[in-house]
Amino acid sequence: MHEIGLIQTVMDEVSRVAEANGIERVTKVRLVVGRMNGAIPDALEFAFSVLSPETIFEGARLEIESVPVRLRCPHCGAESEGEKLAYFCPECGGRAELVAGQELYIDYFEGDDGKEDAGEGRDGAEDSARERAGGP
């Protein structure tokens, strides 16, 4: 696939948000990748290891949550999970809808803002960061 390009996008987006939050060094990035998505976790990790040296991501850990394919049947409500993509409900045979497995998003990142921990306002910092990061 195009994992190098995806990781470059992740780094660009995280860098932008990190800068806006005064974060000088990123220590961890967490992605959520559905198994129905074409992006391959090993290739994403490889891309991250290639692109991170001499950036704010140097030494950072990339964590990837791999989300299994989940289907829900609108007729009988049954949920099923599987690697193989039969889009029919195993309970009633109706057509099931994909409810998980196609994700491709940045969940969160962790970093260091280079400031001394004053022992307060940690939660507040998180909240304001979340708000600033939440916009388009």
């Binding site: 948000v17 940045i106 001394e116 940690r122 990061a133």
Partner: peptide, 18 residues
């Protein structure tokens, strides 16, 4: 000090906008 920033942002968001 360590900071955690939640993004919950699609990687292909820019493509979707265009």
């Amino acid at each position: 000090m360590p900071v955690k920033v939640v993004m919950a942002q699609k990687i292909l968001r820019a493509n979707e906008q265009v």
